[in-house]
Amino acid sequence: MLKTSTTDVVPEKKVEANSDRKFKLTAKDKYYASIFVGPSLFLLGLFVFYPMFRTLYISLFLTNSFGNTTLFVGLDNYVKLISSPDFVASMWVTVVYVVGVTFFTIAMGLLLANLASQKLPGIAIFRTLYSVTMGVSVSVAAIFWLFIFNPSAGFFTLLTKMLHLPTVNWLTSPTNAMWAIIITTVWMHLGFVFLVFLGAIESVPTTLYEAADVEGVSSRYQFFHITLPMISPTLFFVSTITIIGSFKSFGLIDLITKGGPTNATNMLVYRIYNDAFFGGNYAKSSAEAIILAIIIAFFTYLQFKFLEKKVNY
């Protein structure tokens, strides 16, 4: 017993002695650090940092038909983009989409999670049903929703016909197309968000609710004053990943609207892809990519600065 305890103490002392000295890397430390960090730094450099700086570099030039830089134009590409009504419209569309998707995903996710957290017989069936969209891939979801939105034989069209309502042109009118994309994206995200919220709600101590029940507090009050504050870290996490995720949304747009009609769903990421691989204008799309990176960085910063303070850990 005694022996083991002494051996336990010895290294601790050593550590203490070490930390008393000023923190300094020895040659050996540096050697080991380079071995451990080196490979990942090399890979990151090759696949993340190099493309990033290369994009920045290309965005300051004009590119010819093969994508090679030919003429240095400085910030000309950026000035052109920001002064083009098309690009500004695209930014607005993206913001509307991101706000819409984040709001509805979180609201629906919370609602469903709260419902499914009730202890009722057979609730497991609903939990499975609500999280089922997690297992659906983007292409399957797109095809599925395209059938629903089909103007001649779609589910919505048949429904409105049965109820003798005017048919809604889901994908041909600009405003409706935006709604169609938002609905589809929310539906896609919902399964995951629901599951995360459910986990968070389940982990709230039941004693808090029991105390509230004793006080005779309404269940709505309980939700807003116990559940919501207690799951705020999860809320923060979900809002961050939903915002970043919807900024980068691509698959559904490509498969459902292709950015149309009249650019109503031409989000930034889709525009970048389009300008590079259809237009062959790599300079322009590089500039757009840099602008998108700045916007996402800005939103992430805002969230960490303001939202994180309100989070109740």
């Binding site: 797109a142 395209l146 041909t172």
Partner: peptide, 21 residues
């Protein structure tokens, strides 16, 4: 009839024609 310009507009239009719409 406007079938729009989305990913399925071509298919939707052909389906509409074949179904006599």
């Amino acid at each position: 009839m406007d079938y729009g310009s989305g990913a399925m507009s071509g298919t939707n239009q052909t389906t509409g024609f074949l179904n006599g719409k």
